[in-house]
Design a protein around this nucleic acid. Structure first.
Lengths: 107, 107
DNA sequence: TATATTTGCAACCATATGATTGCACAATGG
DNA sequence: CCATTGTGCAATCATATGGTTGCAAATATA
């Protein structure tokens, strides 16, 4: 709770992943978000703080209400980490393709 | 340590992410893996257990050595979760595209 | 067979985590 | 001005986490 925030650590918690999905399309207030979960309002507030700390979400003050919205660009960092594995998938797929065409040529 | 394993929880730890990257291209023994980190062999062994529990990696016994390899298919589950956000990215990109072409048409 | 190597597991420990409760404070509305 | 509403923060607590050390089991080697 006190350590440096990290996206991967942030999305490790299922409630936080659910929050991310919930506000992905529409910004919401903490109270509105909390209504979707069993957890208390304060507990959700803590999750929002963690998500804010690693800049996965941001706030928009509107009178006394605060709307939290997803910073979808930040999600791309996960995508970026996955890229190295995508390359491997594709390489394997191409290898399979080679094998298949060799079988075909043998016929 | 005792609870049900989850991929997102597994990749939350930086050492585990490093292990995944390390063995992505080539299966390795626990000792060989541990040499790449400051942590003790036993600590790495624990990480390997966690990764195994959520089926992100698998083992291949070879004499008295055990080779751990990445189950790259499992990584696609993260990809799958990201898909919902990719849709939003693309929608935004298209919106931007619309705006740009409208500006162009005005000229 | 005796010894060395490779590995996993159990016990233990300090710290992180996620939840709850209670409070404070600012903005709104009567 | 006073009550209500929306929100964050501090304190506390049980449990999870990640690390260490010490040991045991299995395989390889002399």
């Amino acid at each position: 709770m006190e350590t440096r925030r990290d996206i991967f650590q942030a999305i490790a918690d299922p409630t936080r992943r659910a929050i991310i999905t919930l506000i992905a399309l529409q910004a919401m207030t903490p109270n509105a978000i909390a209504e979707h979960f069993d957890a208390s309002r304060q507990s959700v507030s803590k999750h929002l703080r963690i998500l804010t700390e690693c800049e996965l979400i941001s706030q928009k003050q509107q009178g006394r209400e605060i709307y939290y919205q997803l910073e979808i660009e930040k999600m791309k960092e996960i995508e970026k980490w996955l890229e190295q594995f995508r390359k491997i998938w594709e390489a394997r797929f191409n290898q399979l393709d080679d094998v298949l065409s060799k079988i075909k040529n043998k016929k």
